[in-house]
């Protein structure tokens, strides 16, 4: 150790160890899939992959921001659904497209602000608040859609549908937009002071507050961001598929949650990057795609998703224990030292 200073690799110095691992797994999964299922490289399948990736990535950016400060938001799937319905209703009422677009976003921002208020101001457990909001929002969706057909709202003005259909050189504009958003957020995280503060706040809230970072303020706006981005994804998705119904975004929160954990986030906070969110979303979307291509029944899909979540949470727990200096033997040994809490 004393003789030379070892050169630190790029991956290590940018703290992208877990992210690059996930990217590796994604590439592996893609290669395996293209061998196992010939339909995988079909242009139609690639197009539908883009359509699935774009909203997931947009939602994951908001979720990853919360992960960095040690919070998360389980209401995103429901928010996505309700904002799509809100903009569809506005269009149905004859409002112009920009207004309907804003109506959808405003719904999400409002729900995000409610979450943020409850968590940051009143200090209530974020899991309970966002789960409760998930339930309430789903209830509102059911009430709003009662009397509608199962397909929901399907007729939109062409200028609205155009937003979702736009393409550049065969690549969906939505997908490019989501990637751009990811790049913008990643540079915000790495190059600006507020971005660094996010990670600092998650890593050690007390120390961060002592140095003058406004914890509650940041928490509140991160929840607003998460709600707003979920709403944006919902409205864009509505424009893309040309439908707003009660099924949109159902179960999405768990997928995004898993994506963020796999992509390098931690429930404890202080870790994560937007590139990681991209890697995680790629993994989860490919996994879902694989289920569909190999026609795995939906109940087994739930089993796999649950098992992956348990695995990821356990690995995350082990990593946190390692970070606090416990030896491997103390974690996996037959008689671990129980005084840890």
């Amino acid at each position: 150790m004393a003789d030379t200073i070892r050169k630190i690799s790029f991956i290590r110095s940018t703290r992208l160890e877990q992210e690059s691992l996930t990217f590796g797994v994604v590439v592996l999964l893609a290669v395996v899939l293209s061998f196992v299922s010939p339909a995988f490289l079909d242009p139609n399948n690639l197009a539908s992959l883009q359509t699935a990736l774009a909203p997931n990535l947009i939602v994951a950016i908001g979720m990853m921001t919360l992960f960095m400060i040690g919070r998360f938001d389980l209401s995103v799937g429901a928010v996505m659904g309700i904002s799509g319905i809100a903009s569809a209703m506005a269009l149905n009422a004859g409002l112009p497209v920009p207004v309907a677009f804003l109506a959808g976003i405003a719904t999400g921002v409002f729900i995000g602000a409610f979450n943020g208020f409850m968590v940051a101001r009143l200090g209530i457990n974020h899991l309970i608040v966002t789960l409760g909001v998930l339930y309430m929002t789903r209830g509102v969706i059911e009430v709003a859609m009662s009397g509608e057909k199962l397909a929901g709202f399907t007729s939109f003005p062409p200028s609205f549908s155009l937003i979702g259909q736009l393409q550049f050189a065969g690549v969906s504009a939505l997908f490019l937009f989501a990637l751009l958003l990811c790049v913008v957020f990643e540079s915000f995280l790495r190059l600006t002071l507020p971005g660094r503060k996010l990670l600092f706040l998650g890593g050690n809230p007390q120390a961060a507050e002592a140095t003058g970072i406004r914890r509650r303020w940041t928490e509140f706006w991160c929840f607003v961001l998460s709600g707003g981005l979920a709403a944006l994804a919902g409205v864009l998705m509505t424009a893309r598929v040309g439908m707003a119904n009660r099924y949109m975004g159902e179960g999405l929160e768990m997928q995004i949650f898993i994506a963020c954990l796999i992509g390098g986030g931690s429930i404890a906070g202080g870790k994560g990057s937007y590139v990681g969110a991209l890697a995680g979303v790629l993994f989860v979307t490919l996994l879902t795609n694989a289920f569909n291509l190999l026609s795995v029944p939906s109940e087994w899909q739930a089993v796999v998703i649950g098992a992956v979540l348990v695995l990821v949470v356990v690995v995350d727990g082990v990593m946190v224990l390692r970070k606090s200096g416990r030896p491997w033997n103390g974690i996996f040994g037959l008689f671990p030292n129980r005084i840890s809490a």
Binding site: M254, E299, W300, Q301, A302, V303, V304, I305, G306, A307, L309, V310, V313
Partner: peptide, 9 residues
């Protein structure tokens, strides 16, 4: 939550 999804499946 993980075991909930798994067992539900």
């Amino acid at each position: 939550i993980g075991t909930m999804l798994l067992v539900r499946g």
